[in-house]
Design a protein around this nucleic acid. Structure first.
Lengths: 192, 192, 192, 192
DNA sequence: GATGAATGAGTCTTCATTCAT
DNA sequence: CATGAATGAAGACTCATTCAT
């Protein structure tokens, strides 16, 4: 159970990373943003890495939770993919700072612990798409001539690159509109 | 014309970034790798940013050159896409360190000059795919029911994510084999 | 309100400049003199320039305060000039290091902020002498045939050069004695 | 006998000091200004200090020469002082960069050799004024009630401060006009 | 005479972290 | 809970100088 301060520190960390990138994510900057001393941060987290770690863990939990719930959603496989796109995109619109953290594998290279967590999130996402596609192919809702793993990668990759471009262009286009277009294209490609 | 030392510094820089990420790309580490003093580096490049800049510029030039030559390649649009995939993948296999640098948009956030160069490379790639797809659609070699921009993004994104995963798993699978699979899948999806 | 450490740093800075000149006023040397790490200095001042800035500001404040009080001193103009000479000289004797800082306009050339502060102190001093001379000429306590601005410059210049020589000769003569002589000479020159 | 290059280096050094102060007087900057490599400088002078040394020596020689010639000038003591003022001022107008070097005792603090040379120039100047005043007092061309040493200091100090202010204000007033005023004032003060 | 490459000490400054209070 | 003071390692970069060519 995180304390209030811990939650605050995590939130402000994400904001900070979004604003200034990982290079700007320093304890000093974080402390300033939270409005406490640098040493105060260490009451709540034992190190900078542990903050990043917790952020990734939290995100991982949310993702797992979301995927669990997906099982009970009554939609065709194609619609499920569209649904995931929409859901993810809405999350990113609500909290654009997430993008910087979640798509920044590069950044966590140094710390084994972090890079494993990062890779894990990537895999969970791809596995999820894979299962949905497998199911769709079995139910004959999708084309059957292509391998589910490759398709899952394509689906995930497209979402990622679009969101990444949205961030790199400083949110210069409507992620919702473009996301809808891509998800429509993807659906059409996968359809029988 | 770069001197021998400049070339060496650029190469070692790419290697260093691949090994330790941008956070590990310090003048100190670079000097150690090159086998000279830190100050010696500054005889050859006026700043750290200028090293990164040159790396991106060089890559950009190679990319532009490659795309120029593509015009004279006698292939169908679909085969051209496959050809690009193969070519890029071979480059990455030859020089795996490149991946870290080229797919690390996050990293250059702070430096305007660098992030623009980064974005530029991304755009050149996507535009290239877009033109090929446009041409393929006109020539009726590809499906015509979907927008070229979306398709180009999907094509590019898939290449990127696969290569990224290859790097994140420390080159644990054959990029050539997986690349062939993905490019086959992509071709099948785009086919009429 | 400066903290104890801040005061100490300011004092040691002045001493350091007096000993080794501005070229020797480095954070490293300062830290050594204060007996802390270099980084510790930065807890108390945000930069080296801000240390110099504070020194000049403090001196400026003291000077302004001194001049304010002069209005309430019941002395003839000539005696006031003598009084100022004595006062300044006593300050320099108390804190010889000040000389190096205050008469070193050359040094602050690079930093706009500092050179302006420097020039300001010079002007305040000259203006002060000018006003006293103006007043003395009106009250007929001084010769009236010469311009107050020129006379003020001469009065100030003489004080400065004497003090400077005192410093350059490593305090080899009694500033008090020589100061008394000069101020006597100046008074005689200005007298009706 | 200095070579052409040596002379050039000396001249460019003075210019450089005038432009950027002593802190900007680096071998790198000097080499750039001369249009050669840094190492080339060391063909002509064995060190940076030796350049400064030569500059001061040259100036010293010129000064000594000038003073020697003064003996043969047929002027009253008061007019001689005016003549010296005029002459020095014209030199500074011709070569404003000299001011930065000559009035920057602070700067040479670290190097014994340099600071002695500096002090020497100061003394030569004051001695010269002193002798002229002594002579003037003997010939009854000047007031006799004040000590020659003090008066010499006042005469020298006034010239110095005026020129210094001229430099600090970036040559914002006519040194010739102001110099004439000061020298007139000085003459009036010294007159019987 | 001059260059190009290099060095080693030093510049200011920032970082994550610790610890006494 | 939080602060304030400190540390030591590291950051990018500059400096005067040397030396082989």
């Amino acid at each position: 159970m995180p304390t209030k301060r811990q939650t605050e520190i995590l939130e402000k960390s994400i904001l900070l990373i979004a604003e200034k990138g990982i290079q700007g994510f320093t304890i000093r900057n974080l402390a300033k943003k939270v409005g406490v001393t640098e040493s105060a941060i260490y009451r709540h987290f034992k190190s900078k890495v542990s903050i990043l770690c917790t952020i990734l863990e939290n995100f991982n939990n949310i993702l797992v939770e979301f995927i669990k719930k997906l099982d009970h959603v009554e939609l065709s496989s194609l619609d499920k993919i569209e649904y995931i796109y929409k859901n993810h995109i809405q999350e990113f619109i609500k909290n654009p700072a997430l993008v910087s953290v979640l798509f920044a594998e590069e950044i966590f290279k140094n710390e084994k612990e972090l890079s494993l967590k990062m890779m894990n999130i990537l895999n969970i996402n791809q596995d999820n798409f894979e299962k949905i596609i497998e199911c769709g192919q079995k139910k004959n809702e999708m084309r059957n001539d292509l391998d589910k793993t490759q398709l899952a990668l394509i689906v995930l990759a497209s979402l990622r690159l679009m969101v990444k471009k949205w961030e790199l262009t400083r949110y210069s286009f409507s992620l919702e509109t473009e996301g809808a277009k891509i998800s429509h294209t993807i659906k059409t490609l996968l359809r029988k």
